[in-house]
Structures are given as C-alpha cells and as structure tokens.
Design a protein around this nucleic acid. Structure first.
Lengths: 97, 97
DNA sequence: TATATTGTTCGATATTTATCTAACAATAAG
DNA sequence: CTTATTGTTAGATAAATATCGAACAATATA
C-alpha cells in the first residue's frame, strides 16, 4: 500500500514524461469503467513498443493490472490518488472537454 | 502568461523526472526568499552539467530567471502554480519536515 | 487439433540524454 | 589593467531510451 511512498516522485514524473504514456493515463481517466485492455488504447507505435511503455507505467506503480483470459486489463493504481491527489488532478485538467 | 498552457504536460513531467532537477525545485520550495542563485544550490555534478539541467527547467517554463550583476537568480514560475496548483503541492508533500 | 487473439520478449538499431573537461563571456573587485 | 567570480557553450563520450520486426507464450475458439 505505502509501497508508493517508496517510489521517488522523480521516477513517477519520469514515467509520465512521455506522450504515449501520458496518453494511456488520459484515456484511462476518460474511460467509463476505469479500466481498459492493452489492445483497446489508441496509440501510434508498434505493439511491442507499446508493451514497453505499459511496462514502465506498471513499474512506476501508476498502473495496476488484472488478467482475464487472454486479455490484460489496466487501471490507475488507487493508491496514487490517495498519496498524490494533486497528480491525477493535474493530468485531468489538461484533458479537453 | 498562458504560454504555459502551450507547454504539454508531458514535457513538464519530463523536465521534472530527474533527481537533480527535482532537487532544484525542492530547494526552491524550501528557500526563504523563493529565489536562489545557480551556485547556491546543492548538487553533485559538474557545474556544466548542472547548467544543462537548469536550462531544461527554464525551457519547460517551470523556472524563471533574474540576472543581477554576475549572478543569475532562479525562482519558480508563478504561472505554474496558477495553472497547475496540484503540481507544486505534489512535490511539496514529498519534502520531509 | 488447428487457428485466431492478445500480449510479451529478444535482438538490433537509432536517437536522446547525462556527463565531463576545457575554453569562453560577462561582471566585479583589487 | 589584472584577477576572481559566476555561469554558459562546445566537443567528446558513455549510458539510457525508443523503436521495430520476428519469434514466442497463453488462452480461446472452431
């Protein structure tokens, strides 16, 4: 739970400092259910590259995953919003209405 | 003023995603006057390298500068706090008391 | 069992980034 | 005018990162 406290904020920022990864977060924020399978995101790179970016977000503990059959569903780590409430809000206000 | 709106958030995050640059922001937040000269920061790299990191923060418009004689004083861009109030607060809560 | 779907891993490559030393520029002080 | 202070720039190098194609693994379906 408090594992996120152990993740230096600069590592979190670093993981968010990429347009593709930021796109993932924004799409999750905008999603109805709060979770999306890897293949359901909009992205403009090879799927291997996309997988690489997802891995980075998972390792920064910004995302959590849930496997169902052959699909892997991703969602924002609820602890992040608790520990750094201003972080998700900052991203949210950059999403056009 | 609203020039910051034009800076994509992922670029801002990227500029913050480095321990040295994060150190600069934290030291400014903790400073009495809100501004510090380049040479007055604590850092553990060559001064040329440090200058490089400062440049990145300036280009991300997170910092502003003011020159006085041979010294250059740096301070947080006031617009950042207005546009992204959660951002500075997120950094602040990671600073030990 | 054979095929399709979903996602990861491997190996290679190109780009970006961090870092240093040395030289430089601008101001200040003697 | 000479020297010290403060910070930047140039050039070189090493490390990290992004990217892709191809092969793979696991599950689902026909």
């Amino acid at each position: 739970m408090d594992k996120c406290k152990l993740i230096p904020l600069d590592k979190i920022f670093k993981s968010l400092g990429d347009p593709i990864r930021m796109g993932v977060i924004k799409q999750l924020i905008m999603s109805e259910t709060g979770e999306m399978s890897c293949g359901s995101f909009d992205y403009c790179v090879n799927k291997a590259t996309f997988s690489h970016h997802i891995k980075i977000l998972l390792e920064a503990h910004i995302l959590c995953e849930r496997t169902e059959g052959v699909k892997k569903y991703l969602f924002l780590n609820p602890s992040i919003k608790k520990l750094y409430p201003g972080l998700v809000e900052t991203i949210r206000i950059t999403i056009p209405d």
